[in-house]
Design a protein around this nucleic acid. Sequence first.
DNA 1: CTGAAAGCGCTTACAG
DNA 2: CTGAAAGCGCTTACAG
Lengths: 331, 331
Amino acid sequence: MGPGKVRLSDVAAVAGVSLSTASKALNGSTRISGATRERVREAALRLDFRPDALAQSFASGRSRTVGVLTHRALSTFAQPVLIGAVLLLGERDQATLVYDGDVGVSRRLGHSVRELQARRIDGLLVIGDGHERVTASLTHHFGVPVSYAFTASDDPDDVVFLPDNELVGRMAAEHLVERGRRRIAHLTGPGTSIAVRLRESGFREVLAGAGLEPVGPVLRSGWGRDWGTQAMDRLLDSGTRVDAVFCGNDHIALGALEACTRRGVAVPDDIALIGVDNWEGVVVDQNTRQITTLDLQLEELGRRAAASLVDERPEPGQHRLAPTLVVGPST
Amino acid sequence: MGPGKVRLSDVAAVAGVSLSTASKALNGSTRISGATRERVREAALRLDFRPDALAQSFASGRSRTVGVLTHRALSTFAQPVLIGAVLLLGERDQATLVYDGDVGVSRRLGHSVRELQARRIDGLLVIGDGHERVTASLTHHFGVPVSYAFTASDDPDDVVFLPDNELVGRMAAEHLVERGRRRIAHLTGPGTSIAVRLRESGFREVLAGAGLEPVGPVLRSGWGRDWGTQAMDRLLDSGTRVDAVFCGNDHIALGALEACTRRGVAVPDDIALIGVDNWEGVVVDQNTRQITTLDLQLEELGRRAAASLVDERPEPGQHRLAPTLVVGPST
DNA sequence: CTGAAAGCGCTTACAG
DNA sequence: CTGAAAGCGCTTACAG
C-alpha cells in the first residue's frame, strides 16, 4: 500500500527547495527561514516522509546504536541494570548491541570490542556484577563516550554509576533511630565484601552521631537465609538486649525473622528488622510484612548510566545512586 | 592508532582484484575461486580490515537490528524473556531496539511501529506479559519476520512462543505420582487465568491416567503467599487426607509450607509440595529446601523467540517450551 | 538563508 | 570466475 518509498528529494521537490535545504529544515538547528522550514515540514507530512535511518547513519556516521558489555551470566542484580539501560535507550531511539562475556577475559572481549568499533557505536556501557569487582577500563579503546554501571573501573577519570552502599547503611540506621530504636545489632554478609564494609561504615556513622554504637558484635559471614537464622540465634543466645537489627540483605532478614518467630519474639514490636534489596515478596504480597527494606534502585541505575551516554555527559568519577526506603506497614 | 581507516578498496588493491571481487570473496558464498578468496582474506587480515557496518547496512538494506516491543512496565516474568532475547541477538551480532509501551494501545504503538519501519529492522519480537492476554497481531505492518513471546497473538498464522502450561501440570502430577503420592490436592491462582486452567488440565490428565483425581476441591483464588497459607489451612481443616499438593506457583507453595510447619505437618515426609516459577530462594540457598518447583525457562523462551527471527524460521503457530523440574533435595 | 556537489563505503545486478 | 558501474539516500562543508 502506497506510492512507493518517499525520499527526501521528493519532499524537497514538493516544497520547492533543494535537497540540502530540505535536510537542514528537517534536522538542522542551522539558520533556516521559518517560512522555508514550515513549507518543508508540510511537504514531509503530506508525503508521509520517513527518513531512511540506514542512510542517515551512513551519511552522518552516527549509528544510533549503543554498545553494552555485560559480565558473563547476568546475575539477578545485574539484570535490572541491563533492563533499565535498554529501556531508556529505546526511549531515545537508540538501539542496543549487547555482548555478554567475562569483561575480565580479553579473548572474548577482543572480539566484542572490534565488533562494537566496526558498528561505530555512539557510546558504550559496561555493566558489571556489583560493588565487589573492579573492571579494567576500556575507555581508551573507543572514541565515543563510555560509562560503567554496577562496577568500579580502575581509571578514576571514568564515568561510573554505583549504588550508594554507604548511604544504605546510613538510611537503615536513621530509619531505626528515628523510630526510637536504641539497641541496634548488625548481621551481614562476608567481611571481605566491599558492599558489606560500606554499609557497615555508613551505619556506624549515623549511630555514632546519635551517641550509639552497634549492640553486640557485628556478625559477618554469608548472604543466605540460613546465615540469617543462625546469626540471629547466636545474637539472642548471647543474651544481648536488642530492639532492632540491620540485616545486610533481605535473605538474612528473612532468616532472622524465622528465628524470632520460632522464639516467640515479636517483629517488629520487640525487634525491628531492616534488610536490603527489596527482594520480591519480602515486603509486597504478604500479610507478614514485618520487614522494612532498602531498594538499591538498580533499574534506575541502568537508566542513569545509559542516559549519561546519550543525554548530557556527566562529570568523570563515581556517581552514587541513593536507595529507596520500602517500609513494611507495621514497622 | 594506525594508518587511518582501511577500506575494502585498499584490500582489493593489495590483493590485486576489483572492489566487487573483494566484496564477494569476503562475504558472498558466490562462485569465487579458492585462490582469489584466499588472497583477499590474507590482504584483509594483513591490513586489519574491518568492514564499516554502517556502509554495509546502507548498501544491503539489512540493518542488523531487531525491534522489540514490550508491554508497558516489564513484569518480573517478562524481564527474563527480554534478557534472553537481547543476549541471543547479541550473539548473532544483532542490535536490539526496544520500545516499551502498551502493545494494546495504538497511540504509542503507532510511533514505535513507524520508528521501527524507518530503522528497517530485520525482524520484530513482541514480548507480552504472560499467558493471560492476547496481543493484536502486528505482523502485517512489517515486511520482515515477526515473532511473539510470552503472549498469544490473535492471528493463528503468527509465530508464537509460550511456556507449556499444560505440561507444567502434567510434570507436576507425574513427579508426585512417580514418587508414590496418591492423595494429591491442588491449590492455585484465580480460575479466570488461562495458565491456571491449562496447568489444572494437564494435572488432571496425568492423574486420570493413573486412575486418580485431585483430592478435595481444587481451591482457586490468588497468587500470593497469604492465599497459599489460607488455602492449605482450609484443606487441612476439612479433614481431607492429603499426601501431596500441587501449588499453582511458588508463593502459594511457600504459604502452604508455612501452614504445614505451624501445624506440625512434616514437609515433604507427610505432605510433598510442588510449586511453579523457581522463584529465587525457594529451592536454592536454603536449608529448608522442602519444595520442588517447575522452572518456566523464561530466559530460554526469549532466546528461542529471538532465534526464530535471525536463524531458521519456524512453522507458524504456537511453540510451547517445556518447563524444567527443580527438585528440592529432600523431596 | 539557500543550493550545487561531493562523499559516506559498501553491495549487487549486469555484462563479459 | 571476475570487473566496471550504478546506486543505496542521506549529510555536510563549501561557495554564493
